[in-house]
């Protein structure tokens, strides 16, 4: 949630990013991109590419990819940017058998707790990996899934997914994995495993009882919903995965059946405003992106041209200069 908040305003004011980042550190919530203390992502990367099994050449990357972006087979979830502690616990659960798997069980058992931490820290440290193309989900399924995510299924005793997994399923480090952008077959498979009583590892059997209260169709709908949403900061770098670039279509002025205009004052060529959410790929063509130095050591990232609209230029000080005009109210040193 914090991160979504941060991202929501990232496109409007760099100064606000500093505020959000500060509140985040004040909250004591570790950024889920941060490796856990004692874990070394570089060592993890070495393990990931099979460095410890030089002879057999088996590494995580063979299935999960070097960037952990996974695939839609259902067996290889997206690991990129997942909370490090969650990935570590997942490896422990595979090793202990809480999550039975003939593939991941033996692999996890060969790893020491330190190595598990390192691998988890590596995949948690990957900041950007491409997302697959937008999933085409029919509107009804997406609405059913979105409603389950937002408010649950009260009549069946299913609480809202977003209650723990965050708005849009962005996850809440360290415990709750993100769901937004995860592959639908993987989500569906895991929920069905819980429904059939074939996996554990969820605290207090929460997920098991939720899955058991859902129908298979509801599980499918919510899985497709989460696969079709993205964390709001996603700006795909890889053009192959970017949705069709270009301007958003102009608003058509429609006529009612009685021949009256239904125009309610919509802007004909909408441009991002102060409160707009920037949808990737819909930026109008413009000059090359300015590179902005962000405070607090945040990653340097070229901002899209509409991220710094003219109204964010430094305000002009219009007060009369060289006079002693005051507002009359004494300045108080109290917040």
């Amino acid at each position: 949630m914090i991160r979504a908040f941060k991202i929501g305003i990232a496109s409007t004011a760099a100064a606000l990013i500093a505020t959000a980042a500060l509140s985040q550190s004040m909250l004591g919530l570790s950024d889920r991109r941060e490796p856990s203390p004692g874990a070394d992502p570089n060592r993890g990367r070495f393990i990931t590419i099979g460095g410890m099994f030089a002879d057999q050449r088996i590494g995580c990357v063979q299935c999960h990819g070097i960037d952990g972006s996974g695939n839609s087979s259902g067996a290889f979830p997206r690991l990129t940017d997942q909370a490090g502690w969650y990935l570590f616990k997942t490896l422990q659960d595979y090793a202990s058998g809480l999550r039975p798997s003939e593939i991941m069980g033996p692999i996890a058992q060969t790893l020491s707790p330190q190595q598990m931490q390192d691998v988890a820290a590596y995949y948690a440290s990957i900041k950007e990996a491409p997302y697959p193309a937008e999933l085409q989900v029919d509107v009804q399924t997406r609405q059913i899934g979105g409603a389950i995510a937002a408010v649950g299924i009260p009549s069946q005793g299913v609480p809202a997914c977003d209650g723990c997994h965050g708005p849009n399923g962005v996850g809440q480090a360290p415990l709750y994995p993100y769901l937004g952008g995860q592959f639908a077959p993987y989500l569906q498979h895991q929920l069905m495993l819980w429904k059939q009583g074939r996996r554990d590892g969820d605290p207090m059997n929460v997920m098991e009882l939720i899955a058991k209260a859902m129908t298979a169709e509801q599980i499918r709908a919510v899985s497709l919903y989460y696969a079709s949403v993205r964390p709001r900061d996603v700006i795909p770098r890889d053009v192959r995965y970017a949705p069709d670039a270009g301007r958003s279509p102009a608003v058509q002025s429609l006529q009612s059946p009685m021949g009256n205009s239904t125009d309610v004052g919509a802007v004909q060529n909408p441009q991002p405003g102060r409160s707009s959410v920037v949808v990737p790929g819909t930026e109008p063509a413009g000059p090359p992106s300015p590179t902005v130095e962000l405070p607090l050591g945040l990653p340097r990232r070229p901002l899209p041209p509409n991220a710094l609209p003219p109204y964010l230029s430094p305000p002009v000080d219009e007060r009369p200069r060289g006079t002693t005009t005051t507002t009359g109210a004494p300045v108080r040193n109290q917040p």
Partner: peptide, 20 residues
């Protein structure tokens, strides 16, 4: 009535509970 386990989210007072 079915009551769910607490998720320790830290939003009890003065909030309503979304988890039942």
């Amino acid at each position: 009535a079915k009551i769910n386990p607490c998720m320790y989210c830290g939003f009890c007072d003065p909030f309503g509970c979304e988890h039942y």
